[in-house]
Design a protein around this nucleic acid. Structure first.
Lengths: 230, 230
DNA sequence: AAATAAATTTAGACAAACCTAAAACTTTTT
DNA sequence: AAAAAGTTTTAGGTTTGTCTAAATTTATTT
């Protein structure tokens, strides 16, 4: 079955939202898609008629198995194109999201498979997100949220939880990118903010909100800067 | 100014038609786009309002300078993507047209320039058509139509005049592709058909229609099979 | 358990891009 | 030069995806 660009965008957004919070609500999806609740309801009816959703009036909704399959196909295309843009065309990892949003709607399945082969079947995209294979299977990202990182445990930034320009702007300002090595030197319970250290820079503060969008891979053989352990 | 996919398709088709015949007619464009004359008139009004056309009711139309600029931008994208699909992803030259029709509508100008650089600024696409540069300039294809090829003059097939599946099917059947070397051994005035020879194959016949869609580059130092010249 | 607030859906409109059928204009034929 | 044929445009309607405003349902207060 084929879908319009608009249908695909709804499916993809529902997928992302239900990854976080389980059942998705109308307002929730409307704000994610920058549209109005009434428009969302219209589209829900259509997707429901195509058996892509479990949907009951006023009760929220989730993707059906079929819906998830479709979503994974779109996610696969999005992440493969991002990989292509960064590793072949030499875009920065923070410039590619909008372009991949367009490329992900190109329909040819053969194109996707040839692209995958050309890129040597990458497992993760430039933001650290896993790329589903043809059957929708993908690796878990073995990453830790910055909020959960142990004190003085060195780790490498490997993914960001959103591609909003606001977030990317803030990361640029703080000089943080994919690959940055950092350690948490203090945690403040008052506002859950963190004091963070990057080599060769003075320590600086990261808010709870920001910390929640950053994912890292611990560097075993940590630098244990001021810790008690030998 | 930005254009919808539909507007871009109209602009591109008008461009191709006026390359052949000068002023374009409504029915002409309707059949090219597989749509109805009334739909064409609707769109003409819109494009005219945006100053992309010279248009007078009932009198036909051509692109304005601005319209040509837009058309060349689309043609540039189409041909660059075709080059990418054939030379990087290893598609056959006869499989890429439909996919490039989708890719040509991706909007990012930076993407086009990075792609062009990645491909090392190719001058011709896999069908032998020239690729316009950023300013719309392109080389003429120094090619001869098969109809005009001199007797016994060896030449290499370098372009086909259309990408219709019907044509590609026929070429496949006759074992002709980009790069095929051939000579015309006889011309029949009755139906303007040609008797053609490809090395290691028995001679075969090509209709006037087919000959008109094939373009070739003469091989200087010809093989002059049965000619009088030493 | 009412009253109020918030979320969701319905009803009715609108723009883009298409359609059919009829009217208007051009070209060709007789 | 009138009639016929062909082409183009207009008029009015459809579908998709959006919107605003009003009605309905669910959740939260008091």
């Amino acid at each position: 079955m084929k879908f319009s660009t608009s249908e695909e965008n709804y499916i993809k957004s529902i997928y992302h939202l239900q990854q976080q919070g389980g059942v998705v609500s109308t307002n929730n999806l409307a704000s994610e898609l920058q549209t109005k609740a009434a428009s969302v309801t219209d589209m829900l009816k259509k997707l429901n008629a195509k058996n892509l959703l479990h949907y009951e009036r006023y009760q929220g909704f989730t993707l059906s198995d079929e819906g998830i399959k479709v979503a994974l196909g779109i996610v696969r295309k999005h992440r493969l194109w991002e990989y292509f843009l960064v590793h072949k065309l030499e875009f920065g990892w923070d410039e590619v999201h909008a372009i991949a949003e367009e490329l992900e709607h190109i329909t040819s399945p053969l194109l996707v498979e040839k692209l995958d082969t050309y890129l040597s079947h990458p497992k993760f995209d430039p933001h650290g997100d896993p790329i589903p294979d043809v059957n929708g299977k993908m690796e878990l990202r073995q990453q830790v949220n910055l909020i959960d990182l142990a004190l003085n445990q060195e780790a490498e930034v490997s993914a960001v939880g959103s591609q909003s320009t606001e977030l990317l702007e803030l990361l640029k300002h703080k000089n943080i990118g994919i690959g940055t090595l950092l350690t948490v030197v203090r945690k403040f319970t008052f506002d859950n903010s963190l004091e963070v250290k990057v080599k060769n820079f003075p320590p600086f503060s990261i808010s709870q909100q920001l910390a929640q969008t950053l994912f890292l891979k611990p560097t075993y053989g940590s630098t244990t800067v001021g810790s008690i352990s030998k």
